[in-house]
Structure formats: structure tokens, C-alpha cells
Design a protein around this nucleic acid. Sequence first.
DNA 1: CTGAAAGCGCTTACAG
DNA 2: CTGAAAGCGCTTACAG
Lengths: 331, 331
Amino acid sequence: MDSTNHVNSNKITINDVADALGVSKTTVSRAISGKGRIGNETRTRVLNYISEHNYSPNVIAKGLATSRTYNIGFVIPGDYRIIDIPFFQKCLFSISETASELDYDVIVSTINGNDISHLERLITNHKVDGIILARTVENDPSIRYLLENHVPFVTLGTTDEEGVVQIDNDHFNACVELTSLLLLKGITNLGLIGGSKNHVVNHKRYDGYIKAHEKLDRTVNYENIYLDVNNMAGIDRAVDDLLEHGVHCIICMDDSICHHVLNKLSRDHMLVPQDVKIASFYDSALMEINSISNTAITSIKFDIQEMGSTACQTLINLSEGREVKPIQLLG
Amino acid sequence: MDSTNHVNSNKITINDVADALGVSKTTVSRAISGKGRIGNETRTRVLNYISEHNYSPNVIAKGLATSRTYNIGFVIPGDYRIIDIPFFQKCLFSISETASELDYDVIVSTINGNDISHLERLITNHKVDGIILARTVENDPSIRYLLENHVPFVTLGTTDEEGVVQIDNDHFNACVELTSLLLLKGITNLGLIGGSKNHVVNHKRYDGYIKAHEKLDRTVNYENIYLDVNNMAGIDRAVDDLLEHGVHCIICMDDSICHHVLNKLSRDHMLVPQDVKIASFYDSALMEINSISNTAITSIKFDIQEMGSTACQTLINLSEGREVKPIQLLG
DNA sequence: CTGAAAGCGCTTACAG
DNA sequence: CTGAAAGCGCTTACAG
């Protein structure tokens, strides 16, 4: 038992295997990477030795030589309220999973409001090969920063910025669909509650809501649209108002809102869907919790896992210099 | 606009500043690190140049030279059910925050059941200086692995393993306290619902539950203890049984369970605390959601943020070779 | 107080 | 097909 605390005190290096095999480390390197010409027999000899003595290359050293880190950054908002949405958690999982498969790791970082210092640190410290932006806002400072510094990055969710690679569910169309569905069902008196207009997602959903009305030639009742609702008190108030206005269905822009709405209704002894119907965009674990109470909710399901995985794949392709499609809409 | 996708294409290096100043890079290095003798005037000259031209050292290169990465690994269970507990999320945040302050970053990795391959990859790839284990199980394979490979690590939560640095809330005593409180309040007919016995936390809590009974000379009703309850159906059944047994209060071992219990009760039109009382250990966002429905729940609050921050601090101290207290119980 | 040199563990033209 | 050498951007004895 050695007393130092250093990781891997007795790691074997490329020099060791070169010496042991009586070849140059160039050769060993080539056997591993598969790049450059190398004799078939030599290669297998090296490869065998390597797996027997289970040597594994020092990724950091490789990184220094190739200007890569084999890390990607996953940047999420540092705001507790937003963070509770299981969306990020699920994303992180699927990103981490597919990163692992490609021998990458993911560094998580936060951005707090307009303070992107953590992001900057990540970049100036050369800690990552690229960034996945979990949420973007209008006129996003992190997007500007990444663009200016030529850092490969993709965004989860749509942004209006030019030339940004974005992975998204098709919120606009999904929302058009959901709204249309409700309207066609004959539910005309709709209410809408949504979070910060600052988030592009919410904007897209709002647009979809409006669009559905246009397409079906219905008039939008703007009085029943509550945006920028960020706290529970606000939700309570919105629900009170909507009920007073006699809406038949409340559409919630995200599941966090939906959850609170349901809670509020239950406190008021209102039954769903008898007294008022509820619809929501993507369904998370929060929704699962509610679903056990058998409340019938119309909701649209997005495949978050696929989103994370696609984002990760795309970013790595991008950072390794491959071509990628600039906009990818899923589901 | 240059067309390569490489991060920081035109980064300035230590050589550049050495050349510009007509000193050796040794000197520049010393000015930055503060190690080794260096003239006062020289130091400030270097430091000034650096901040003006905002040079920042390549952490990767530094890492290669010093065998460090300035990354720490945060390892969480890859199981969705467990993961939904906001505990990990909050931990991640506070760890990430304090890591940032110390110029470290955090790589998130998962371990799936007994499969610790992701962890192994992280270590053999030299990606981190140490590990924070978010949850440990009895006879934990990751602990064994880390121990064998002399990797500095700390665990969140208690483990029985020898010589493991652990940061924990004092679950045992907290549970003794909570249980005693209930017993002394005159609530004698208690029920307990807990998750996998495999997790040390649950064990500690269970022990605390028993201990409280012993201390107050009460007999434990083992029929009303439901452990290894992992799914909603199980919780439903446990609640049904407990109600049938006429318990006055149900203690939930974690808030995920508590949440489901509350849901189940509400479906059964049981009122809390009129019909049955509820107590729970640590209160998360899940609980906040419930608290708006004004259900009176007795619960113990732990400071997760402090836990994460302490863990991070301790790990970094450990990995940098400093002395640390082997066991730290908070709150 | 300062610097030349070797080294961290890899990769990759270049030459043979 | 293979190797010697330079280089990635730092740190750190060692010498002066």
C-alpha cells in the first residue's frame, strides 16, 4: 500500500510497452490509433501486449499533443427553480451515456443569469472540446461568447441566432398540433399559462398556440393568455382568473407549471377533467407522479433521451471537424 | 473568422509572454504559481503583462507536468428511479459551485448497479484527481476499486468500509430524534416505509428508528415496518396494510416515498394529519410542492448544499495531499 | 534572483 | 513498414 494519494501511481506508459517490445513508441502509437502504415504482425503484437498488461493511454497527454480534451461541457442554468425540471437531469444522463460510448466525458457547468464566467473559465482553461447549451434565452450572451471564440457548440432547443447548430423537438408544430386537437375536440374556451417569454421554447409554443387558432380560423382570446408566470403565487392567480373567465381547458407550457396548476385545482376542490381540462407539453417524472392519481391530462411526450444523445453525437462530430446538419428537429 | 473548429485557435502561451518580456518561461511560471524565488519587480512585470494580454495558462499542459487534472468526478447511480430524488441535483450544484471557486471542474459519471465501468474509464483515462461517490451500497464495488487504485475519494453518506473519508448528515441521530419526538408526542402506533436495505442511509435510519424505541423503552412493532419498497405498487400496498393495522403515523424514509404516500392517501380520500400523520426525512423540492397543499408533515431538514460543498472541499484537500478528517457529520 | 534543460506521455511530419 | 526527433504547454530540480 503506497502512501501517496496520487491517482494511478504505477501506470504503465507508451514508453514501457515500446521498450518491452523492442519497437519505437511511434509504432506503438500507430498500432493503437490505427493511423499511419504499420505491419500487420507488428500491430497485433503490440495490441496483444497492451491488452495483456492492460495498458491504457494517458488521454491527457494525448490531448496535449492533439489539442483535444475528450470532454464536452454541458451547460445548464444555475437557477434552482428552473433546474428542478427533470428535463435537465434526463438530458444529462443520456448525454453522459452516449459520451461514454465515444470515450468522452461530460463536465457540467452552470450559467447564472447573465453571468457566464463559469463558461468562460471552462473555455479558457481548455477543459472541453465543445459545449452543449441546455437552454438558451433571447440574445443569449453565452451564444455570443462561444461564437466569438470559435468554440464548437450545439444548443438544446431552438434559437434564432444565425449559424448555430441546434437540436430540438419541434415545439412549434407540436404545439400547433396539441392546440388544434383541443380546438377540434370542440373545446373552444382555452387558457394558456407559460413561463418567461425570454426563453425561446416558450416563444415557439406560444407561436404554435396562435398559429393553431389561425389555421382553424378561430379568434384568440388574449385575455386568457398568461405569460411570464414564474412563481407559484403567479400560477395561483392565473388559475383563479382563468376559472373566473370560465375557461374549459388550461394549457400549461411546461410540466412544472402543470404540476402547480394541478395542485392549485386540488386545493380548490376542482376536478380534472370534469370541472376543467388540463393539457401540457412534455411530460416528465413530475407528470408520472400525477398520473397515479389518474387525472386525465392531455400531454405531448418528447423523447428527451434521444435529444440528449443526438446533441452529444452532433457536438462530437462538430468538434472533430465533421459536417453536421445545422438544425435537427426530432419527433 | 477562421474556418477551423478548434477551440482557442489563437491562444497565447507561456513562451509568448516569456519572449515578449525577454525572460525565461521558468520565470513566467514562477510569477504565476508563486512558487520559487522571484524578484518582486519581475513578478509584477510578468503579472501585469499577463492580465493586459489576458493570458491564461493551459490547464491541460499544467496537468500533464504535475500529474493533475483539476477535475473531480461526481459519481451518481444511473438508475432513473433513484435519480429523480432532487438530492443529487442539489449536490451537483453546490459541488460544481465550490469546485469552480477552487478552479476545478466536475465530471459527472454514473454507475449502473454493479457495473462500474464508467468509473474505471474515468480513472484509467486520468480524467479526474478524485471522486465524490454520491451514494454507496453495502460492500460497494466502486469503493473497493477506488481503494485498490489509491484514488482519493470521499463518499456522500456513511459507509462501513474502513478508512473511507465520508461526509454525511447524521442520519442515525436525526432519525432517533424524529422518532423519539413522535413517540413522546404520544403517537405510539408508528409505521415505517423505506427503500432498499442495500443502501447504507436506509440502514442508518432504520437503526435510528429502532434505537429511539429502545431508549424510550417502547416495543417495536415489526409488522409495521416495510423495507425494500422500491416501486409505487409496493408503496400502495404498504400504505394499505398500515392503514388496516390502524397506524397513527407513517414515517417515510425518503421524500420520494413520502410523495407517493401522500398521493396514495389523497386518492383514498384520507386526510393528513387528521386521519393519519406523516413524517419524512430530508425535505426536497418534492416536499415544497406538497407543502403548498398545506398538509402538515413532520420532517427533518438537511442542508444538502453544505454537504456538497464540504465534500468538494474535502476531496480537493485530500487529492492535494492535505490532511482531512475521516468522518464529517453535519447538522 | 534567474535560466537552460529535462521531463510529463503522447502524436506526427519527415526521412529512410 | 518503422524510427528519431520535434513538439504540444507547462513545471521543476539543478546550476549559477
